[in-house]
């Protein structure tokens, strides 16, 4: 244990040199790197803080816009509901009108169908009535009825008005026009003379009749002078009855 002044002095010098060396080679670079890193971190932190602040501002702005959008949405929804209600009311009104029209149309159709059914029923009734009358008249169609109808025809021919007589004469002015008289039963001589006399009186000349029998007339006679036909028989009466019934239906 001795103190060597040479070693003492060199050690003092060595230590001071070591302080200088480490300060230049180690402490400064390490502190520089640490300071750089801290500066970088601080910069990043500041950047992050700035971004966070911007994000907050953007968030608030977007929240405000979202609130506005929500209000606009509510208003638009209210307007839409109002328009929907109006449109619904309009459509309902239209539907009601359409239903009323359809109902009216159906009512009309039903009325027509009912009228058609009634008409058909009446026609059937008339047809039945005609058939019934024809059946009934067939049973009462005797030569005496034919005689009565011939007498009735003579009366009607004589009772024709003058204008009609002139018209018939005009139509039958051809003197050679054949006069044909059909009867359901054979007429006796007096009945034929009465008919011939009435026709001669009507046409204003002497006529020669061709006498035929036609059972389809049921009872009575039918006179054909050229284009002019005069019927006084049950067949034509029944036909006239049926046509008159149809004419009434058509008028209804």
């Amino acid at each position: 244990m001795e103190l060597d002044w040479s070693t003492f002095g060199l050690q003092v010098l060595n230590f001071l040199v070591l302080v200088w060396l480490l300060k230049r080679l180690l402490y400064k670079p390490v502190f520089t790197v640490i300071a750089d890193r801290q500066a970088t971190m601080e910069r990043l932190r500041a950047e992050a803080e700035r971004l966070r602040t911007e994000g907050e501002a953007l968030k608030q702005r977007y929240e405000g816009r979202l609130t506005e959008w929500e209000q606009e949405k509510q208003q638009a929804r209210a307007r839409l509901h109002e328009e929907l209600n109006k449109e619904r009311a309009r459509l309902m009104e239209e539907v009601h009108r359409s239903v009323a029209r359809e109902r009216e149309k159906a009512k009309t159709l039903e009325e027509r169908r009912r009228q058609e059914l009634r008409r058909q029923a009446e026609e059937e009734g008339l047809a039945l009535g005609a058939r019934f009358a024809a059946r009934l008249l067939e049973r009462v169609a005797q030569p005496s009825l034919t005689g009565q109808l011939a007498a009735l025809a003579v009366e009607e021919l004589r009772a024709l008005p003058e204008e009609q007589r002139r018209a018939i004469r005009t139509v039958c002015r051809n003197a050679d026009a054949a006069v044909s008289v059909s009867s359901a039963h054979q007429l006796d001589e007096s009945q034929r003379q009465a008919v011939s006399a009435a026709l001669g009186d009507l046409l204003g000349r002497t006529v020669t009749c061709r006498w035929t029998e036609d059972a389809s007339l049921l009872a009575g006679i039918q006179v054909n002078v050229g284009p002019w036909v005069f019927a006084a028989n049950l067949r034509e009466e029944l036909k006239g009855f049926a046509e008159a019934a149809n004419g009434i239906d058509a008028a209804i």
Binding site: T7, Q11, V17, L18, L22, L25, L26, D36
Partner: peptide, 30 residues
């Protein structure tokens, strides 16, 4: 001036520390 064993070891330590410091300072990065 006497360069003793102590001084030689001190120089060795200084050289090692300076070398390591130099080596590290060149490899420092962020």
């Amino acid at each position: 001036v006497r360069v003793t064993e102590t001084v030689m070891m001190t120089w060795l330590i200084m050289a090692v520390l300076a070398g390591v410091a130099r080596f590290l300072s060149r490899r420092l990065s962020r």
